[in-house]
Simulated assay, not measured.
Amino acid sequence: MTPRKILLAVSGMSPQIITETLYALIHEKNWIPDEIRLITTLIGKRNAVQQLLEDEKHFFRLLQDFGITQEVRFDEDCIIVIRDGRGQELPDLRTPEDNEAAANVISEQLRLLTSDPEEGQSCTELHVSLAGGRKTMGFYAGYALSLFGRPQDRLSHVLVSEHYESHPDFFYPTRSPRMIHTRDGQMLDTSKARVYLAEIPFVRLRNRLPETLLRGTHSFSDVVRLAREATEAVQLVLQPRNGQYSVNGRTGRLTSLQMALLAWVVERALANKPPIEPVVDGEYRPAGELLHVAERYWLDLNIRTTETLREQGITQSWLEQNISKLNSALVAALGPDLAERCKLASRIIGDRRGYALPDDIVLHIDGSTEQDE
């Protein structure tokens, strides 16, 4: 199925970014979008409608001028106006809160346009232009595309020749001569203008992001935070003697048994010992090593738990049940995305399969010294 091509642009007061980018895409890339979407302010929408759409204005003139017969959808419904936290359309972006609202709208639009297609719908091929609007809007568009962009998506800026750039009457290089006036009274022929497409490479982080981030609705700041947590190195620090731990600065508490189990796994990893291998065919696995860890860190285990471990050892069902409880505690404290990167699970390490933490995690135990051994 042929991807649906979408041009997404951000703009402020001047809607020329649409026609300039469309002209460059047609002439340099032979790329004609099926649809154009514009993210702007209330004033920006008014200007876009008046200058590009009403009375067969410059958008339609460009298509006619260059013989584009393919349908390119661009109407008022394709213009997304940035709204504040109360749902009011913003005339302009003047405060930090306005900028935050713009970031949220841009991020959510990029997430939606790059999401997996629903059944019966074609996938999209997205081209994002960051040439218009305030500088922060362009930054947000580029950053969001870096987070959500796929291999087929592109990012660009347009470069317009001197004197024509930012001229209120210039929209694209026309095929026939058309004269416009400069502020100092000089005449410019729009057919002699030059518009170039500057494609901007960007780092695609999509494949490294958790699925919940790609599917859920988050504010821009939450997206950045979650993306950072999902891509940064994870550092797990245990403080077993007070029942606390921290992961990249976010703290939580565990029961004595959960802390003993986690400390046991961490100590084995730090000592380059094999992971905790599962019990096979009811094989008896002594619990002495786990109980020794609990004793060394003054972790007060329930008497019945201690007796069961001494008598029955570590069974498969006991291990799976308590690993599940430990992982649930991590999710509750850290959230699903960060917890996913430090969960205890069945893994293959070297030629051994067993229960262990991810091998890319940085581990440390406070209070673990040679004297304790």
Rank of each mutant, 00 (worst) to 15 (best):
V279M: 13
D281N: 15
V279Q: 09
V279D: 04
P278L: 09
E267Q: 12
L301G: 02
G282Y: 06
V280C: 07
A287Y: 01
R268Y: 03
L270M: 11
V265T: 11
E289H: 15
V266T: 02
E295C: 09
E283H: 11
L299G: 01
R304K: 08
W298G: 14
P278W: 02
E277I: 08
L299M: 13
L290A: 04
V279W: 03
A287W: 03
A269E: 10
L290Q: 00
E283Y: 09
V293N: 00
L301H: 00
N302K: 04
N272H: 14
V265E: 00
D300L: 15
N272R: 15
V266E: 04
P275N: 10
V279P: 01
R285S: 05
A269K: 07
D300F: 12
E283C: 07
E277L: 06
G282V: 06
E267G: 11
K273T: 00
A287R: 00
G282W: 08
L299F: 01
E277C: 10
L270D: 04
V280Y: 07
A271T: 08
V265M: 06
E267C: 12
A269M: 12
N302G: 09
Y297E: 02
A294G: 07
A271L: 15
N272A: 13
E277H: 04
D300R: 09
N302Y: 02
P278G: 08
Y284R: 14
A269F: 08
E295M: 15
P274F: 02
K273W: 01
L290N: 01
L270S: 06
H292V: 14
L291R: 07
I276Y: 01
V280K: 12
E283F: 08
H292W: 13
E283N: 10
R285L: 08
E295G: 11
Y297N: 01
L290S: 02
R268L: 03
P286A: 14
R268N: 04
V293R: 02
A269T: 12
D300V: 15
K273L: 11
E267Y: 05
P278I: 04
Y284F: 15
E295N: 13
L270I: 05
L270Y: 05
V293M: 06
Y284M: 13
Y297K: 03
N302R: 06
A294N: 03
L290C: 05
G282F: 12
V279L: 11
W298C: 15
N272I: 10
V293H: 02
R304A: 11
V293D: 00
E277R: 11
V266R: 02
D281C: 06
L301W: 00
Y284V: 13
W298D: 12
A287H: 00
V279A: 12
P278D: 07
R296F: 03
K273C: 04
N272L: 13
R285I: 13
D281L: 11
W298H: 14
E277D: 04
Y297M: 06
E295D: 14
V265G: 01
P275W: 05
D300A: 11
A294D: 03
H292Q: 15
Y284Q: 14
